[in-house]
Design a protein around this nucleic acid. Sequence first.
RNA 1: CGGGGUGUAGGUCAUCGGUAGACCGCUGCGUUUGGGACGCAGAUGUAGAGAGUUCAAUUCUCUCCACCCCGACCA
Length: 411
Amino acid sequence: MKYSKLFPKTLRQAPVGAESINHQLLVRAGFIHQEMAGVYTYLPLGWKVLNKISNIVREEMDKIGGQEILMPVLHPGENWKKTGRFSSFDTLYKLKGAKDKDLVLGPTHEEIIYPLLAENINSYKDLPLYLYQIQTKFRDEPRAKAGLLRTREFMMKDLYAFHESDEERNEYYKIVREAYLKIFKKLGLSVLVTKASGGTFSDLSEEFQVITPSGEDTVLVCNRCSVAINKEIAEDKKCPQCNGNLKEERSIEVGNIFPLKRSYAEVFNLYFTDKGGEKKIVSAGCFGLGISRTMGAIAEVFHDDKGIIWPETVAPFQVHLVGLDLEEESVKGEAERIYKLLQAERVEVLFDDRVEVSAGAKFADADLIGISYRVVISKKTGDQLEVKKRVEKETKFVTFEQFLEIVKNPR
RNA sequence: CGGGGUGUAGGUCAUCGGUAGACCGCUGCGUUUGGGACGCAGAUGUAGAGAGUUCAAUUCUCUCCACCCCGACCA
């Protein structure tokens, strides 16, 4: 991609109202655009990052047997009346269709997936079954805030797992838990697994929290062992496991996993026939992961005063190629040549090909956008590449081949 | 939903009863080019919306709307 064609341009100042770091940086760097409170457009750079996060999640979901589907955003209100959530789900968006039909914009998909399963699951041979989707969810939050951290329309991965028994469900819960830890590790985020707030669910209900001062959750972390608890459910200031002192930390909840209540299966008649010919109720678990919120969390955690510092796994491009002195034909030719060579090697490269823009402005944009590797071609670089990692201060000069090695084997 | 704040050019902000200006960005020309260069010349506005007060309202008053922050809320 040539920078001169990239939509839109970066902004020198954050728009008024953008207070949180992720909001400011993502808007300035041209990743997102706010349309109204809690609703954003994902611009080319932002959409790339979102897809990279999605793909990492997808890969791990597939590894643990997940089958990807896409359920509708628009739900029949009737299903929500059956579970009682048409009136009890506070942040539900409701609308009317033709003939005054009640409709719902999906904030979660139990009301869709249970009827779907009930129609297709009959035997123990059909179980277990793991279905997931990555989709836009809607929740009419009383107060949207903090950029991508709390929005009314957001991208989420939700996995629904269906089992013959609670025991089997609990075993799979551990498997998904591990998959989540792998995902966040790949995303470069260190997460704490905390006992969830809410209390509606069993002990297995847990949240994945990213510790950062700008977080809106508060968790209590033990200074001696690994225990972490959401503050909303903590009774005292001592660790329940080792009696160590608990320290308060602010955090962002990026994932939440829990067993689903039996009542959904009862309402939608989700039963199966077991080996002995007996009719039994299906046991299920739900596993959520906020894709767009995770993007915001990454910007909150990984940035400096100049801009975002994307982990290599989710950066919109692998390489930011900066051409200087491009009014000199030989330099321009060399920059173009490197650009094409990188593309031929399937390296994702953003090429700043602007001729009339000063070096300082190009560097400032590169820092703001936050792509992991910056490669400069100028009249000074000769037949080598000047490489700088976004996280490091010093630059080094390497051959094209050496650079390929570095980029293709990220650590 | 309670409390507070802000709405003026595409973006950030000045102006404050007498009909609007700077910087960034944009267009053109010229000079520049290793950390957000400079000169000259241009284009761009229903001052959030409505009502009121006034000879006169962007400016004062009221209502509404939008956005942000704190809180409440967050299957």
